[in-house]
Design a protein around this nucleic acid. Sequence first.
DNA 1: TGATTATATTAACGAGCGTTCATTAGGGAA
DNA 2: TTCCCTAATGAACGCTCGTTAATATAATCA
Lengths: 199, 199
Amino acid sequence: MKYPNTKKLIVEKALDYFSNNGYAGASIRQIARAVGIRESAIYNHFKSKEEIFLAILSEFKPRSLSEKIMSDDLLDELDNPEKFLQDFAKRLIEYWNTPKERKFIRLLLMEQFTKIGSLELSVSDYINELRGISKLIFSEMIKNNIAKKYDPEILAEQFTAPLFLIRTEHLAKDDKIDFEKVSVMVKKHVNFFWNSIKL
Amino acid sequence: MKYPNTKKLIVEKALDYFSNNGYAGASIRQIARAVGIRESAIYNHFKSKEEIFLAILSEFKPRSLSEKIMSDDLLDELDNPEKFLQDFAKRLIEYWNTPKERKFIRLLLMEQFTKIGSLELSVSDYINELRGISKLIFSEMIKNNIAKKYDPEILAEQFTAPLFLIRTEHLAKDDKIDFEKVSVMVKKHVNFFWNSIKL
DNA sequence: TGATTATATTAACGAGCGTTCATTAGGGAA
DNA sequence: TTCCCTAATGAACGCTCGTTAATATAATCA
């Protein structure tokens, strides 16, 4: 019989426990039991609890958001700016709504202040990724004379902040959520935002 | 000599440790040492660690924000709406910047997902307080024909979300921060917001 | 004053923690 | 088959955890 990919399973189950109980509140024994092995077997794959934590974080480095969200068919819509923004926001919250991202935002919010988390986790780093993309979009819109000549950074902030708040409030907890309701909130936000900046 | 108010000291130091290490990551012994007593003496004042946690939360029930922020001289400025909003936002972040509120927002963000925190802590509950006040303000502005006839709830959301994000990013960590820089960010936000809704 | 009450100490408990070690089982390469 | 390496086990380590019990001390009150 082939070996199952235990290392991957450990990271997976560790994310479950860390994101619900916090790093300090989760134990190696819990994780091992969830994987289906004894706690000592964990140390064949990781040399410490901290190393498991860092292995999780390495999967969520702030980068490549635009790859995951942007695509050619989205960029084709740039001549219909509101539709573009709506679709962009829609893809964003769909991505944030995936199970792994929901777990990660919990981990990020929980551990950003702790000793172990503060070294590697920064809310700003993750939001800055989205800010950067947004700034590019709005700079382009201004250049093309379809949006008012505001500071693109402020526009990025105004576009981004309500989305991140929706993520924090509705796309973090493990509960079943009414995603349709969240979608409506996002649509209303983007609609208001676009009406504020369109020429 | 009179007894020092040990109970209050325990709550104070517990907030320090809980807000930096999380509930699970902080120990009764750490807290006791910070207070200057042995861990067993804690139990003369609280019957469990959980009771200390709940005592902290009872100091931060979501209410009375308007009492802390609003005042007559602020309401007198309602005929100068932008100045009113600027001063309102300024008082808000000054309040959020107090040491206790900085610690509490960390505790809230960290513990909202854990077993013990999820019963009593909800980010939405705290933001809703601000949303309610904001909604009242904007309803009044619309009625007085000084703001565009948007849905007051959306206006409250647009006004509130960037402020809460600033709180999360810049008014939570224990570091020394450049408060002047934060003030400028808030001013820019309020200015953009007002320009979007003014008649 | 003496009795009472509140607050502290020291010591210990059972449990769980992260981690290590010696040993065993099993799949891949020679 | 034999050898090796990976991955598992069970037992134990030293430590810390939250909590309790017995006891001492210091402030309050009759």
